[in-house]
Amino acid sequence: MSKTASPILTASLPRNSASDASKPVTNTFFAQTALDESGDKGEFKRVDASWRNWVKKEPDAQFPAEKDRYHLFVAYACPWAHRTLMTRAVKGLDDTIAATVVHPIWQKTKPDQDEHSGWVFGNAEGEMLTNTEGNGGPFPSIFPHNEPEPFFGSQSIRELYEKAGDTDGKYSVPILWDKKRNTIVSNESSEIIRMLNSEFNDFAKNPDLDLYPIEMHVAIDKVNSWVYPTINNGVYRCGFAKSQEAYDTAITELTESFDRIADILQKQRFIAGNKFSEADIRLFVTLVRFDEVYTVYFKTNTRSVAHTPSILNYCREIYQMPGVKDTVNMEQIKAHYYCSHPILNHFSIVPRGPDFVDLLEQPHNRNNSLN
């Protein structure tokens, strides 16, 4: 994938003044996607999110919590965006923060300028699509629940970043957008879900649900510290590895952590204890994609959720919680992964798969036992 040198927002601490939000720190970098993020030994090295502001419930905050002020831009396909949709659903914030779902299959965002491919918005009037190499499909120009960008008529997520002054970055989802300031608040999913958990309780339908209770901070942070690198990001480290050494390291760590999860879930109801928490949301969004996508596409076939009873029942319980099912769109998940990276799947053939969602619909027995 060719690149053009240009500045990109870099990771930073949350900004403290209103003027800071429109003055990103810049480095020389390239417009890119995750496929470009590799180390010297072929290992996948994810670039940190760039926009790290915070919504706060205090009325004098730089970004105060308000109903109908903020908007989520997400992809059903993306696990990081899925975290925010799940948190929004279980907290009951659907009426407070609207969301726009992008098209699942990456397209070239500025074909007359460079080769960058990424998230685009659905277009009901558009022509049928292929992958960026002209193969696959043809795919519809809009999937169910995809919508146009509602504020500026942007054709791609890249254009939305450019509206906020980020002209050459990693144009990722989710985005928490401030409609009053017309800027990005955050594109770091782990921080967005904490904002949704704690800062909007005055508007939430389920304000008493605390996904990060103070008495569980240590346990949750500890789980996140190993689940993220070896499971959440671990599947990408396997799938995007560019050397056997890098893959072997990643798959070994993933397999060990998968077994660790299976063991934990035989002893306690949820991954950080006996209470549902943000750690479960972060884990579930990877596990729900595991059998249909990662075991095939990212070569994580040492293990299977469907063949691990403690993990399967855990996934069933979470999937059947109110609101969660509606955030899982396996059609768009598979369309994105199998059709957005021609270097990994040249003809964008979508495997039929085991119908993992049907397994999730079946009753779990965790009311009586953990297995």
Rank of each mutant, 00 (worst) to 15 (best):
S2W: 13
S2D: 15
K3V: 13
T4W: 15
A5V: 07
L9G: 10
T10A: 14
A21D: 05
S22Q: 10
S22H: 00
A31V: 12
L35N: 12
D40W: 09
E43V: 05
K45A: 12
D48V: 02
R52P: 01
W54L: 11
K56M: 09
A61Q: 03
H71C: 05
H71A: 04
A77Y: 13
C78M: 04
W80R: 14
W80L: 09
A89D: 07
A89E: 14
L93E: 09
D94N: 12
D95E: 15
T96F: 14
V102I: 10
W106G: 00
P111T: 08
H116V: 03
H116G: 02
F121I: 06
E125I: 07
M128H: 13
L129A: 07
T130Y: 12
P138E: 11
S141V: 04
N146M: 05
E149Y: 09
G153N: 08
Q155I: 11
L160W: 11
G169L: 08
S172C: 15
S172N: 14
L176D: 02
D178W: 10
T183Q: 01
S186M: 07
S189M: 01
I192Y: 05
M195A: 00
M195R: 00
F203L: 09
D208I: 11
L209W: 08
D210T: 08
V218R: 12
V223F: 11
P229D: 07
I231D: 15
G239Q: 09
A241I: 05
Y247P: 01
E256P: 00
D259W: 14
R260N: 02
F270I: 00
G273I: 14
G273M: 13
K275H: 12
A279E: 04
I281D: 08
I281E: 02
V285T: 14
T286D: 05
L287W: 03
R289K: 08
F290S: 00
D291F: 14
V293F: 11
T295P: 03
Y297H: 13
Y297L: 14
F298E: 02
T302C: 09
R303C: 13
A306E: 15
T308C: 09
I311G: 01
C315H: 08
Y319H: 02
Q320L: 07
P322I: 01
P322S: 08
G323E: 06
G323M: 04
Q332L: 06
K334Y: 06
Y338F: 14
H341W: 13
L344Y: 07
N345W: 02
I349A: 06
F356Y: 00
F356S: 01
R366F: 10
